[in-house]
Design a protein around this nucleic acid. Structure first.
Lengths: 189, 189
DNA sequence: GTCTATACGTGGATAGAC
DNA sequence: GTCTATCCACGTATAGAC
C-alpha cells in the first residue's frame, strides 16, 4: 500500500519549512500552497498539524540515517568511519546554512509536556548513540583515561551534540572541527 | 536613571514565558495580562516584540551569570568549582523541568538570518567558555591526553552544551551527570 | 506615560459541493 | 478524495482619549 504522491509532497515541503523557518512559524497555508494541494487534502492525510509533526519527525529520522549511511557507508576502517560522523555533520551544516540539528531544533519549539514528541526525538538520538557504540566495539580502543567504552561512547556523543548546537549559534563549523580533533585524540592511534 | 517598575515586570514575565512556552508561542496579550500593564505601555518601552526579545536575551545573560556566581562563588578550589558548573546545570534543569538551555532554545526559534540575535546568544556562550578557561588556568591540569588547555577548554564546554541539550530531550539529568564524571576524569586528580 | 478600543493579518480547522 | 469558501480565535501593532 503505497503512500499517495500528495502525502509525500506534503511531507517534503513541511520538512523543508519546519527546519528552515521553524514548526511554529510555518503555517498550514504555506504548506498547502508550496505543496500545491488543497487545504482539505492536507487534513485528509493529517488530522491536525500536530499529526503532521509526528510524521515529520519519524520520517526525518529514517532519512537522516539513510543519508548518514550514504556518507560513511563506504568507509571500512571503523575509526575513520567514526571520525567521518563529524565530517557528515560539518557537511550538513554547510549545506543547511548552520541551522543546527533538526531534531533538537524542533524539540526547542515544543511545549515541555509533549512527551510523545520528545520520545520521538530521543529515538533519533539514542539510535545515533548506539551507532557510535557499535563502531567503538569494532575499534576496541585502548584508552587508559576514559576507563570503559560506555564513557567514551557518551563523550563522543555529547561532543557531537554540543558541537552541532554550537555551530548553529556561531554559524561556522569550528566547534565541529574541534570536536573531531578531540575525538581523534581520545581514540588514540 | 532607574528602569521603571513596569519595564522590569514586563521583562520578568516575558523571561518566564519565553522560556516555558517559547518565544513564538508567547503572545503580547499574555505578557501584558500577566504583567498587569496596558498594551500601549509595553509598546512604549519596547517598540516591537523583537525589541523585547533583544532585551530579554541580554538581561538573561546577566542574570544567568549572577545566579552561577551565587551557586559556585563560595567554592575556592578551582577544580571543585569547575565541576560545580555541572551541578549548577543539574540544579537548574531540575528546577525548570528540563526545559534545556534558555539561550539555545530561543536560538532554535529564530530565523536563521537574524544574526544580531545569534550574536547575543553567542555572547553568553563565549562568556561561559571564558569562565571555564579561567578556572582551567587556575587548575593547571597535567593532562597528557588533551595536549593543551584550549583543547580541554573546548571539551568541557562542548560536554556541558551537549549534556544540557540532551537533558532537555530525555527529561532527566543523566547526561549531565555523565558529563560531570567525564570532566572529572579528564581533569585527573 | 498609561489607558481602552480597534485595525488588520494570519493562525488552525471545518462544511459542504463536486 | 479533492476542491473552495468560510469560521473564529489570536497574532502584532496603532490610534487617540485621558
Amino acid at each position: 500500500m503505497k503512500e499517495s504522491a500528495a502525502k509525500n509532497r506534503i511531507l517534503d515541503v513541511a520538512s523543508r519549512l519546519f527546519y528552515e523557518q521553524g514548526y511554529n512559524s510555518t503555517g498550514i497555508n504555506q504548506i498547502i500552497e508550496e505543496a500545491e494541494i488543497a487545504r482539505a487534502s492536507l487534513y485528509n492525510h493529517f488530522p491536525s498539524k500536530r499529526d503532521l509533526l509526528t510524521s515529520y519527525i519519524q520520517r526525518a529520522e529514517d532519512i537522516w540515517f539513510e543519508e548518514l549511511e550514504a556518507f560513511v557507508g563506504h568507509i571500512k576502517n571503523p575509526k575513520k568511519k567514526l571520525l567521518a560522523l563529524f565530517d557528515h555533520r560539518i557537511s550538513r551544516q554547510l549545506k543547511f546554512n548552520f541551522g543546527g540539528c533538526r531534531f533538537i531544533k524542533v524539540g526547542a519549539e515544543l511545549p515541555n509536556d509533549d512527551l510523545a514528541a520528545f520520545e520521538l526525538i530521543d529515538h533519533q538520538k539514542s539510535r545515533l548513540k548506539e551507532y557510535i557504540h557499535q563502531l567503538l566495539l569494532e575499534i576496541n580502543p585502548k584508552n587508559e583515561l576514559l576507563q570503559n567504552l560506555e564513557m567514551l561512547n557518551e563523550t563522543i556523543f555529547l561532543l557531537i551534540e554540543g558541537a552541532t548546537v554550537t555551530a548553529g549559534i556561531t554559524k561556522n563549523p569550528e566547534a565541529l572541527q574541534s570536536a573531531k580533533k578531540i575525538a581523534e585524540t581520545l581514540l588514540g592511534q
